[in-house]
Design a protein around this nucleic acid. Structure first.
Lengths: 357, 357
DNA sequence: CTTACCGTAGTTACCGGTTTCTACATGTGC
DNA sequence: GCACATGTAGAAACCGGTAACTACGGTAAG
C-alpha cells in the first residue's frame, strides 16, 4: 500500500490550464495578462476568474524566453555591509523599483576575478543592466575582459554601468556615473593644509601597482592639493591599507609604534577613520586636540562619532539612482560626474605648534 | 543609402549555432555544458572551441523553462541600509554563493502590502527560496495570505523562509530561523533592573495593534523581566516608535520636554539608541552618569560610540547563512532558534539615588 | 556467426508565454 | 445585396536548452 505524497507535487498551472477553465484559447489568456490587445469585457472577466480560482502564477522565464525583457537589473559590489555601498544599493533598488525592475545583488569582496565571473553570470541572466559599484581594478587583463563584456552586453541590448569608477575607455559602450573622487580628496587635503597641517598621513590609499581606481584618485587629490599649496608631501605618510575599520586601527598602531610624526590623519574612508580614532584614543592621543582626523564618504555614523568626523560627502543614493535611470533611458547622457563636498564637523583643528606625536 | 546600425543588433548565439560550427548536434553541446553525459574528448574540445569562438552565453531562462532549478534565492527586507539587516543580507549572500545560488533583493520599507507583492513576484521568478528578513506583521489578512504563499511555494518545490520572525502556524510549510528576541530583551531589562534601575524607558517597541513581531517580543521580554523582579513597570514608559535614529532622537526630546522621570533608556534598536544618545547629549544629560542607555542588535558601531553601547547581540550573519542552508537542505531541522546575549560596554551604570531626570 | 552491450551522438518533443497570421462574426457604407 | 472595415478569438510556430528515446559502429560473449 503506497501513501500518496502529501504536498501534491508541482501541479503547475499554465495559461493553457486557465484557458481551458475559462473556455478560451491560451492566446486570449496571454492577452488578458498583458492587456495590450482588445479582449471582450465578458471574456476578460471569465479569464480573470479562472486565474484566481486556479491560483495562476506567470512564469517569467517563459516570458523572457519569448523575447521580453527580464525586468531585472544586477548590481555588483564589494560587500553589502559597507555603509556607503549600502546606500548606493538603496538608490539602485529604489530607482529599479520605480522603473518596474527587480534587483539582483552579487558581492565580490574586492576580488576582480570574482567580479568578472559575476558579470558573466549576469549575461546568462539576461539582465537589463549590470551595475558595477565602487572602484575598479587597474589590471590590464581585467580591463580588457571588462571591455569585452561592455561590448557584449551592449550588443545584447543590455548595458554595463560603472558606478563610482571612471570609464574604461573612449569607445567602450558603458554608462558611467562617477563622483568627483579626486576633487573630494583635493578639497579635504586643502582644508587640512589651510588649517596649518603640514604632515598629513593619508591612510588607506595608494597608487602603486593594481590598486583600485578609488584609492588611486584619492591619492591624486592628496598630491595635487600639496602641489597647489607649494608643499612637498612625504611619500612615507601615504600608507596603503584596506578600506575597513580594522585596517585603520592596525595601521595607526603601527604608525604610532614606529614613532611617525604627523599632525593629521586623512583616512581614505570613514570606516578607516573609525579605526584610526580607536587606535589614537587607545594610545592616549586626543582628537582633535593632539591630532586632527578626516574621513571620506560621510557615512551616517560620522556625525555620531565623538568628535563628529569631518569628512567628504558622496551623494551615494543619488549615484545609485542615477546609474539605473541612465542605463534604462538611453536618451540621457551616458557619462555623469556628481559633485562631492566637505562636511566640516569637530575632528579637525589647527595643529599645535612644535607638535611631535 | 542606409547606414547599418553600428551596434549590431542582437546576434544571439544559441547551442544550435555552436553545434553547427562544431559539426555536432545541439544535444551534444548541451551535454558538454552540463558534463553529465559522456562526450568523446575530441568532440568536447571542438565544442568548447566553438563556444569560445562564438562567445556563447547560456540562457538561464531557457534552462529554467525546461525544468531546471533557477539557482536563485530571493531575500526580502525592510531596507538595505539598516546595519543589522545588512549583516543578515551578507550571511544570505555568502551561503547562497556557497550553494551555487544567485541572490535577488527586494525592499519593503516596512510595508506588509509591499512584502506580499514582492513574494508574489518571487513566485513568478520561480526562486528556489524566498527569505523574509526581519519582523513580520501581525495583521490577520497578511498572515493568511502569507500562509497561502507558504503552501504555494512548497507545492512548487520552493520554500518560504522566515528569518528573524516566529512561525506562521503549526502546519504551515516554512523554514524558520529565529533568534531569541524575547530572551534578549528579558536579559537586558534584567541587567538594568539588577543595576538598580526602576524607571526604564523602553523606546521603539510596543505591543498594540498590528505592530511587528520584533517589537511585540521585545516588549514581552521587558515586561517579563519586571515580573521576575516583582516590579510593576510603568506602561507610559513604553514608547512606540520606528526603528531609526530619527525616531530615537525625536521621542527622547519629547520625553525630556514632558518632564518624564527615568534613570535608563532601553532602546529597541541600536539605531534608536544612537538617536537617544544624541538627544540626551543635546539636553546636557550625560550617559551613563545621569542616565543609562542600552540598545539592541549590536551593530558594529555600537562599540565605537562614546560611551560604548551596552546592547544585545544578535547572530545576524549566522541567521542569514542558516536560513539559506536549511531552506536548501531539507534534511535539516526546519525550525531553529539562535541565542542572543548581552554585550556589556560603558553605557549602563547603577542610577544615582534620588535622581530626577 | 550471431546476439548483447557499451560508448557516443542524433531526433524529436517539450517547458510556458507570446507572436504572427488567419478566421469569422457584426456592422457600415454604397 | 455586396464589399469592406472592425472587433474579437484561435491555431501554429517560436524562443533556447534539455530529456527521452533512437541509432549505429565496434567489441565481447555465447
Amino acid at each position: 500500500m503506497t501513501i500518496t505524497g502529501e504536498s501534491g507535487d508541482d501541479e503547475r498551472v499554465t495559461v493553457r490550464d486557465v484557458a481551458a477553465r475559462a473556455g478560451v484559447s491560451a492566446t486570449t489568456v496571454s492577452r488578458v495578462i498583458k492587456g495590450d490587445y482588445p479582449v471582450a469585457q465578458a471574456t476578460r472577466t471569465r479569464v480573470l476568474r479562472a486565474m484566481r480560482e486556479l491560483d495562476y502564477v506567470l512564469n517569467v522565464h517563459a516570458r523572457a524566453l519569448s523575447g521580453a525583457s527580464t525586468k531585472m537589473v544586477a548590481f555588483v559590489l564589494d560587500d553589502v555591509t559597507g555603509p556607503s555601498f549600502a546606500y548606493v544599493a538603496k538608490g539602485v533598488e529604489q530607482q529599479a523599483t520605480a522603473e518596474g525592475r527587480l534587483c539582483m545583488v552579487c558581492t565580490t569582496h574586492g576580488d576582480p576575478a570574482r567580479e568578472l565571473a559575476v558579470v558573466e553570470a549576469m549575461r546568462e541572466q539576461r539582465a537589463d543592466a549590470v551595475i558595477l559599484v565602487g572602484g575598479g581594478s587597474l589590471d590590464d587583463t581585467y580591463r580588457e575582459r571588462m571591455t569585452h563584456f561592455a561590448h557584449a552586453l551592449d550588443k545584447a541590448g543590455s548595458r554595463l554601468v560603472l558606478c563610482g569608477r571612471p570609464p574604461l575607455g573612449d569607445n567602450v559602450p558603458t554608462t558611467v556615473v562617477e563622483y568627483d573622487n579626486e576633487g573630494g580628496a583635493y578639497a579635504m587635503t586643502s582644508h587640512l593644509l589651510s588649517q596649518g597641517h603640514r604632515r598629513i598621513v593619508l591612510l588607506g590609499a595608494d597608487w602603486q601597482g593594481d590598486t583600485s581606481t578609488t584609492k588611486r584618485d584619492r591619492v591624486y587629490g592628496y598630491v595635487r592639493a600639496h602641489e597647489s599649496f607649494g608643499i612637498t608631501y612625504a611619500p612615507d605618510l601615504i600608507i596603503p591599507a584596506g578600506f575597513g575599520r580594522a585596517d585603520g586601527y592596525e595601521q595607526t598602531r603601527r604608525l604610532i609604534a614606529r614613532g611617525a610624526v604627523f599632525t593629521a590623519v586623512f583616512a581614505a574612508t570613514d570606516m578607516v577613520a573609525i579605526g584610526v580614532l580607536a587606535a589614537l584614543r587607545e594610545a592616549g592621543i586626543r582628537v582633535p586636540e593632539d591630532v586632527s582626523l578626516a574621513g571620506y564618504d560621510d557615512i551616517p555614523f560620522a556625525a555620531d562619532l565623538e568628535p563628529g568626523l569631518t569628512t567628504v560627502r558622496i551623494p551615494t543614493e543619488e549615484l545609485g539612482r542615477t546609474a539605473v535611470r541612465l542605463a534604462l533611458n538611453r536618451g540621457e547622457p551616458q557619462h555623469v560626474v556628481l559633485g562631492t563636498h566637505i562636511v566640516v564637523r569637530d575632528s579637525v583643528r589647527p595643529p599645535i605648534r612644535n607638535q611631535v606625536s
